[in-house]
Design a protein around this nucleic acid. Sequence first.
DNA 1: AGTCCACAGGAAGGGCAGGCGA
DNA 2: TCGCCTGCCCTTCCTGTGGACT
Length: 407
Amino acid sequence: MRSCGVFRLQQELVQFLEDFASKKSVFKNKKVFQPSYKPATILHRNDLIEQMAKILAPVLKLEKPSNLFVYGKTGTGKTLSVKDVAEGFNKLVISKNIPLKILYINCKLKRISDTEYRLIAQLAREFGKTIPPTGLPTDEVYKLFFNAVDESERAVILVLDEVDQLTKKTGSELLYNLTRINEELSKSFVSLIGISNDLNFVDALDPRVKSSLSEEELLFPPYNAVQIQEILNERAKEGFAKNKIGQGVIEKCSAYAAREHGDARRALELLRVSGELADRSNNQKVTTEHVDEAEEKIDRDRLLDAVSTQPKQAQAALYSIISTSSGKQPIFTGTVYEFYKELCTRTDLRPLTQRRLSDIISELDMLGVITARVISKGRYGRTREIVVPKTLQAANIRRILQDALNL
DNA sequence: AGTCCACAGGAAGGGCAGGCGA
DNA sequence: TCGCCTGCCCTTCCTGTGGACT
C-alpha cells in the first residue's frame, strides 16, 4: 500500500516537473535581475563614473590616488559604478602590465568581514597568505597583511563596501589602522575606497579617520522615477521574453521604488517577483496586479524570513512582545520582561537578564519587526515604549514563533 | 526646585567554543 | 595536552536621565 502511494506521489512529481519544464515562462534571462548582474551600460551614472576614474587615474602611473569615500542610499548604483571603474582599470592592468591590485570586500558579509580580525585575515588571504579563522593575535594578522602587500612594488586599491557596517560592530580602530597603512609600507601603497549607505557615517567618525578617508567624496543621489523607469526598461528588454510585460507594469514598479528613495535594486526585485508570480499563476503576461502582489510578498517574505532565522532568545522576546501587546496600548520593557520570564519557565529556556533583553528589544527594533523608542513616564520612570506595527502580520508571526519555541 | 521612578545603556569581565603552535 | 588567542553571548555593576509628582 505504502509503496503504491509513494509511486503515485513520484508520478505526480514527475508530471509536475515535466509541466514546469515545458511551460512557457515570461522570462528570457532571469539572471538580469540578480543584484550581482552587471549591465553592459550603466544608466545615469556616467558623470560619477568619470569623476571616480579621474580621481583614481594617478594609480596608473604608480602614484597614490586620494582615498575616496562614496556614499548614497541603497540601490543608487554605488557598488555597480565602483565595480565598473575597477573593471576598466583591470583591463589596463592586463594590457599595460601595471602592478595594480584592486580588492573588493563587502564588510557586511557575516563570518567573513564583520570583525577586525576577520577582515584583515580576509585581506591577507587575498594576497595568498593562509590565516586561520581564529587563534592568532590581531596585530600578528596585521603584520602578515602588511608584509604580504609590501612583498613587491605595487599599487593596491582597497574597496570597502558597506564600510559603515564595519565601524558599527568594531569601532573606528580598524579604519584608523587602514588609513595609516601606508606608513608601514615601503615599496607599495594602498588607496581606500569606502562605500556607505549611511549618509551621516563620515560625520560620526573619529576626526583623524574622517579627514583621511574622505580626501575625496562622491555622493550618489537617488534615481528619480523616470530614471528608474529607463533602467527597468533596459533590463526588461534583456530579461523578459517579447511582449510579456503588460501596460503600466514598469511604470508601477518605478513609482513604488521612487517612493522609497529611488532604490533601483528594489525596483528590479519588484519586477522580477512580479514576473515569477505571473509564471506561477500561468499567466502569459505580467500585469500591474502582479506588481501589487509582489510588493506585498516581498515585504512579507523578508519579515517572516528575518523572524524565523532569529536565535531562540530573540524569538522568545518577540513572542512575549506580540503576546503582551493588546493592540491599542503600547507596552513597556518591564511588562515584556515579566511575560518573558514566565515563558522561559514554561519552555525550559534559560531566562536572560533584563539588561540583555533590553538589547534584544532594540535589536528587534533595528530589524524593523517592532518599533521601540525610549520615553519618559515622568514619575513612573523611563522605559521603552514598544509598538507592534499594524502592518505586521502578528498572527502569522506568532504561529511561526510557536512552532519554533515548541509551544 | 527637588525627588524619585523604571528603566536605558556604558564598562568590565566571565565563560564558552574554536583554533593555533609547542 | 597545554597555554594562548580570538569572537560571541551574556551577567554584573554602575551611572545617567526625562518628566510627573511633591
